[in-house]
Design a protein around this nucleic acid. Structure first.
Length: 573
RNA sequence: CGGGGCGUAGCGCAGUCCGGUAGCGCGCCUGCUUUGGGAGCAGGAUGUCACAGGUUCAAAUCCUGUCGCCCCGACCA
């Protein structure tokens, strides 16, 4: 493509509303523009990158045996009422009425539609298993869209759904997707990690997130330095500690006046104890019912774990009114002694026998509390966040923390949708069975943004070759010199004939401007056509990533680039 | 939704306190010079100062309301 004919508006200024580097560069490099909050247009250059990534996704999905189809974005309310999500899916589900006053929604995901499709047309075990996928626009009315295309409302997603006869088959389908995802992100040249993820109320450990590692990532993950354990922080398990029979104290409870001490730090300072001797009592409202969660003062509660343990749909910290009802005191002084609610305790409370707690009375705490003696704990469970000092739950090795961008999620659904929507089949002996499902997503735009987070420098984007919108940019230093212009045109023609994706920067601009733009948009190879080299019959090839310069005779340039690109493709493929 | 900030030319911003001719840089158009890392000179175009109402002789500026956008907390690809 000739640069002079392209719609490629680049910018020198950093847009004022962009925080993340990927967001800034996607605007500056002319990849996209915002239409309204959380809704973006892709410009030609950006769309080429999207298409490149989609193609890799397609190839690997097809290779895994999945079949591509295309489902509607507008969906009828009835399907969502059947699955129960019309009520349970929150405000992210954009609902509206059509001219006949029929309730509809924009698809935030497609389990309902695909399950409906499959239940109508798959009737026998002979038609199973199947894995169907699409690359479609989703709409989720996010509370707070941010970070450009990273968390937006309208976005492209590859979503796949597997249907199997039984658990064993579903596990096989899951495995295949997991491997396909590994190949996809490897081919893109991204540094990523698959981590165990929360699978919500469906249960099981069959959920993995694919995280592109980046400090700007919204997700925190931990991984073991010794074994291959890796998990989303909210999922990371903590082994039940062994009970050490340390010195068992049996001091009587004592209520102490502790004015102006609401935080753990203040209590510790006042009573001269360490945070691990304090027990925090957090009052949650679980589907409207009060539950007290006890956690050591130096730990943080993991709400996902609490929610999963209770199996409740909603879990939030109780409001002032509920706290008063169960503790009889204002927020900040809750304790387990005498509390009127169910009590859950984190494993770390096991063996504690002399702790400080709120007294359920304003400005008072109790010390020398002994769980079991002074109050009863309903259940012990793993309810806290992992810390960097905790050992690996698998091998006891050292746990490390990192941040990542969730670009993919593989999920075993079980029969959640197939049961509620009656997706059944007849098995070999004529018995009706419920299909076992899995679902598998990849954020298309988000992966592209994540690739930029990981691949940029002070001058702009540094595309991994498989995602680059063009592979080569030819930069004649001065378009008004016929010799330079002709040589550049000649190379452009040769490369195009060799199917090398090339931009010819034929703009009547100064060399500096062209170099800056080439760097900004991140084309992997730049061929500079300048007077000095050309007089010697040579051209200069610069590698965007390494900065390495190769000087070759004119006739060798195209073959060099073509084979270089092909080789790189082979390695990544 | 709760808390904070912003809205002035295509982009980045000043001007707002203290009311009085709407500005700067980049970009854009024309011409000449220049031509290997965002050129120089000369000339030029571009504004519903977010919107609505109010106060005033006079409002970008003061008052009230509305909308939009961004950032921090409840969700997910």
């Amino acid at each position: 493509m000739r640069y002079s004919e392209m719609f490629l508006p680049t910018g020198r200024e950093v847009p004022s509303d962009a925080e993340l580097i990927s967001h800034q560069l996607m605007i500056r490099a002319g990849l996209m523009r915002k239409l309204t909050s959380g809704v973006y247009s892709y410009l030609p250059l950006g769309y080429r990158v999207i298409r490149k990534f989609e193609q890799i996704v397609r190839e690997e999905m097809n290779r895994s045996g999945a079949q591509e189809l295309f489902l509607p974005m507008v969906q009828p309310a009835e399907l969502w009422q059947e699955s129960g999500r019309w009520v349970h899916y929150g405000k992210e589900l954009l609902r509206f009425r059509d001219r006949h006053d029929r309730e509809c929604c924009l698809g935030p995901t497609h389990e309902e539609v695909i399950t409906d499709l499959v239940r109508n047309d798959i009737k026998t075990y002979r038609q199973l298993p199947r894995n169907l996928y699409q690359i479609q626009t989703k709409f989720r009315d996010e509370i707070r869209p941010r970070f450009g295309v990273m968390r937006c409302r309208e976005f492209g997603m590859k979503d796949a759904y597997s249907f199997d006869m039984d658990e064993a088959g579903a596990e096989k389908s899951y495995r295949k997707m997991f491997e396909a995802y590994q190949r996809i992100f490897t081919r893109c040249g991204l540094r990523f990690r698959s981590v165990e993820a929360d699978s919500g109320s469906i249960g099981g450990s069959f959920s993995h997130e694919f995280m592109v590692m980046a400090d700007s990532g919204e997700d925190a993950v931990c991984y073991c330095g010794r074994c291959d354990y890796a998990a989303n922080l909210e999922k990371a398990e903590i082994a039940r500690p062994k009970i050490e029979d340390a010195d068992i104290k049996n001091l009587p409870m004592e209520e102490v006046h502790t004015p102006n001490t609401r935080t753990i730090e203040e209590v510790c300072r006042f009573l001269n104890v360490t945070p691990d001797a304090v027990v925090k009592t957090l009052i949650f409202s679980a589907d409207g019912t009060a539950v007290a969660v006890l956690i050591r003062g130096d730990h943080e509660v993991n709400e996902v774990k609490v929610r999963n343990f209770l199996g409740c749909a909603s879990l939030e910290l109780a409001d002032e009114e509920m706290i008063r009802r169960v503790t009889g005191s204002p927020r900040g002084f809750a304790g387990a002694v005498g509390i009127r609610s169910r009590i859950l305790a984190d494993y770390s409370l096991i063996g504690m026998n002399d702790c400080v707690m709120g007294a359920n009375r304003e400005d008072y705490h109790i010390r020398h509390v002994k769980p079991g003696r002074d109050f009863r704990i309903g259940d012990y469970a793993d309810l806290r966040m992992i810390r960097e000092s905790d050992p690996c739950p698998r091998c006891g090795g050292e746990i490390k923390f990192a941040r990542g961008i969730e670009v993919g999620h593989v999920f075993k659904l079980g029969t959640k949708y197939s049961r509620s929507m009656r997706a059944v089949f007849l098995d070999r002996d004529g018995k009706e069975k419920t299909m076992v499902m899995g679902c598998y997503g990849i954020g298309i735009g988000r992966t592209v943004a994540a690739a930029i987070e990981q691949n940029h420098d002070a001058d702009g984007i540094v595309w991994p070759l498989p995602l680059a919108p063009y592979e080569v940019i030819i930069t004649p230093v001065n378009i008004n010199e016929p010799a330079l212009s002709d040589a550049a045109e000649g190379l452009y023609r040769t490369l195009s004939e060799m199917d090398v994706e090339t931009i010819l920067d034929d703009r009547d601009e100064r060399a500096g401007v062209k170099f800056k733009d080439a760097d900004l948009i991140g084309i992997p190879y730049r061929v500079t056509v300048g007077p000095k080299r050309l007089a010697e019959g040579k051209m200069e090839i610069k590698n965007r990533r390494t900065g390495e310069i190769t000087i070759l005779p004119v006739s060798d340039v195209a073959p060099f680039l073509s084979t270089g690109i092909r080789e790189a493709g082979k390695i990544e493929g």
